[in-house]
């Protein structure tokens, strides 16, 4: 081949070195990120750290959902009240409902939780398929761990995103412990809860126009059906919202969806309506502060008690 004949020795040596470096890097790094050679992004780190908790889900109450779940429910409190181990597998909104579905499916493949509680901020119903592709988190997860999802087929962009992000130099945010090891260690010690330290700032405008996509609703339906097929009860829990963050129309639309979900087979609503709380219990518009998370956990534990007491 003419092309190979014109590559100089320096070119060959460089290509071989790059090939070897990449081979070692790809073989020795975590599937989703360049760790331990490079720090992951906080998004990828969350999914990696939560996957590491899957091994502790046998016989446990598994909390799954968006970041309002991760920052808003303390497994220790729920465990203390119910005497049943509890693991918080809440991740991020950008992972989308199909991501929570896949993570739970991965959990239920090898472990049998005592119960699953889907914990969501109403915003988690918003992302559609295009949004999920834009976020890229789900596609990277599916490709990295060789998983499938009926609502999302990873594309070439996901592969590109996975490959490039694995190589990316990140400085791990100080607020998450400054390194992946510290972050994962913290999540391991709290069974998946992470405290939010921001100070609440009232939003300029109240949120209006609640949207729920078919992509999200279908993923939730599949999640419920999968757990049901394994005989695992599924409960639904709205994360509270600050009183000054949403308008009444938004609340009533979200409540209508909640009621609809309550009619599905295999899922039980634990609240009558989406709760709105005093802003003093929040760190951000979507995340509770430590005091709020404590209160939220106690209320959820109380609601779960009749169903899951050891």
């Amino acid at each position: 081949m003419k092309l190979f004949a014109v590559i100089s020795p320096v070119g060959w040596i460089t290509l071989v070195c790059i090939f070897l470096m990449e081979a070692v890097f790809l073989a020795r790094s975590e599937s989703l990120a360049g760790f331990p050679f490079l720090q992951p992004t906080s998004d990828d780190a969350t999914v990696m750290a939560k996957r590491a908790l899957i091994r502790r889900t046998d016989g446990a109450i598994v909390l799954i959902g968006d970041s309002s779940c991760m920052f808003g429910l303390i497994p220790g409190i729920i465990q203390e009240a119910t005497r049943v181990p509890c693991i918080n597998l809440g991740t991020l909104l950008s992972f989308t409902m199909a991501g929570y579905e896949s993570l739970l499916e991965e959990t239920e493949e090898t472990h049998v939780p005592a119960a699953v509680v889907v914990v969501l901020n109403p915003r988690a119903f918003q992302p559609d398929l295009a949004g999920a592709r834009r976020f890229g988190m789900l596609g990277r997860y599916l490709l990295a761990y060789g998983r499938g999802n009926r609502g999302y087929a990873p594309g070439f962009k996901d592969f590109q995103s996975l490959l490039f992000r694995k190589h990316q130099l990140n400085s791990f945010p100080e607020e998450f412990g400054g390194s992946f090891d510290a972050f994962a260690g913290e999540l391991d010690s709290t069974a998946g809860y992470f405290p939010e330290f921001h100070r609440y700032l009232a939003p300029k405008n109240r949120e209006t126009g609640f949207v729920s996509s078919d992509f999200t609703r279908n993923a939730l339906a599949r999640l419920v059906a999968h757990s049901r097929s394994k005989g695992i009860p599924v409960y639904f829990w709205w994360s509270p919202l600050p009183q000054d963050a949403v308008d009444p129309g938004y609340l009533s639309a979200a409540n209508a969806l909640g009621r609809e979900i309550g009619t599905w087979d295999g899922i039980k609503l634990l609240q009558d309506t989406l709760p709105t709380w005093h802003p003093g219990l929040f760190a951000t518009v979507t995340h509770l502060n430590a005091r709020g998370a404590e209160a939220n956990s106690r209320i959820l534990a109380g609601k779960l008690l009749p169903f899951v007491r050891h």
Partner: peptide, 18 residues
């Protein structure tokens, strides 16, 4: 060779690929 590898590595890890 070192120069090329350096350019490749720094572009891969610190570049904005997306």
């Amino acid at each position: 060779v070192l120069f090329y590898l350096g350019i490749y590595l720094i572009t891969m890890v610190a570049g904005k690929w997306e």
